[in-house]
Design a binder for these strands. Structure first.
Length: 243
DNA sequence: AATCATGTCAACCGCAGTGCG
DNA sequence: CCGCACTGCGGTTGACATGAT
């Protein structure tokens, strides 16, 4: 697969990598490690730009990368993580066993997004697409995951905002009014009790727990400080209250 | 068998963030 | 504080594979 090979104006090779190029890059990084991607291609004897080398290494050549089909468990985890993190594939990848962000992104765009849509879930908001529909929230057909069938409630988008929407509103309001510092944000984001306080009703709480991963799932609720700071910055910017 | 639609995946591009002089 | 260089990330593209008609 991949793309045809060509050379750009600077004489840099583009497109598909050959086995020989792979070997050169692996050999160089094994010997010298990853330092200064810009200079690596020169030193490794490759006519590639540093960016291309970095991408090739991180997405393909790096040891321990898991390739091939995603298991139902992995798919479910991606959906849950996406409900919390959105299209932040690098962050999602950090919580997945040896999967690259590119791999996850590809699988989401080509497969999971469609599966959710087919099941009546908006892949971006993780909300039911049509409130009048009976929604079957089976996330992966091939998996053994839970299936909850039932009519959706009117309250979803109109009268009562979803739990995650309420949570975001609260965070944004807190930041803009400078009520919250980062630790508070962290607490709100990670404390399932806090989150559940903002559920519209019991059904929704159940659904949000399933989709948003607010169960005891300690595996992905571990969010590093850098992540939290970034979230804070984004929210602060969005609410026009940048320090 | 041919054609079309869809899925998969590697790779590129552009932008934002960060560090440094 | 500013500008530049570099890195990392997300969106998108393009080519091949596979399944359906």
């Amino acid at each position: 697969m991949g793309r045809k090979t060509w050379f750009d104006d600077d004489g840099m090779k583009k497109g598909e990598w050959t086995a020989e190029e792979d070997e050169k890059l692996i050999a160089y990084i094994n010997e010298h490690g990853m330092c200064d991607w810009r200079s690596i291609p020169k030193r490794a004897g490759l006519r590639r730009c540093g960016k291309s080398c970095r991408l090739r290494w991180l997405n393909y050549l790096r040891p321990g990368i898991k390739r091939g089909k995603f298991t139902p468990q992995e798919e479910e985890k991606i959906i849950k993580l996406h409900a919390v993190l959105g299209n932040r594939w690098a962050s999602i990848a950090k919580h997945m066993e040896n999967r690259t962000d590119n791999d996850i992104k590809n699988h989401w765009n080509s497969c999971l997004k469609k599966k959710l849509s087919r099941n009546g879930i908006d892949p971006m908001t993780h909300e039911p697409i049509n409130n009048n529909l009976t929604v079957t929230t089976t996330y992966v057909e091939c998996g053994s995951s839970s299936t909850t069938t039932g009519p959706t409630t009117e309250s979803h988008c109109s009268s009562a905002p979803s739990g995650s929407a309420c949570l975001l509103n609260k965070l944004a309001a807190g930041i803009s009014s400078r009520q919250y510092d980062l630790n508070m944000i962290k607490n709100i984001l990670f404390d399932p009790r806090t989150t559940s306080n903002y559920q519209g009703d019991k059904e929704e709480a159940k659904r949000d727990q399933k989709i948003g991963g607010c169960e005891e799932e300690g595996d992905f609720l571990i969010w590093d400080d850098e992540e939290v700071r970034r979230q804070g910055r984004l929210l602060a910017r969005a609410s026009g209250a940048v320090e």
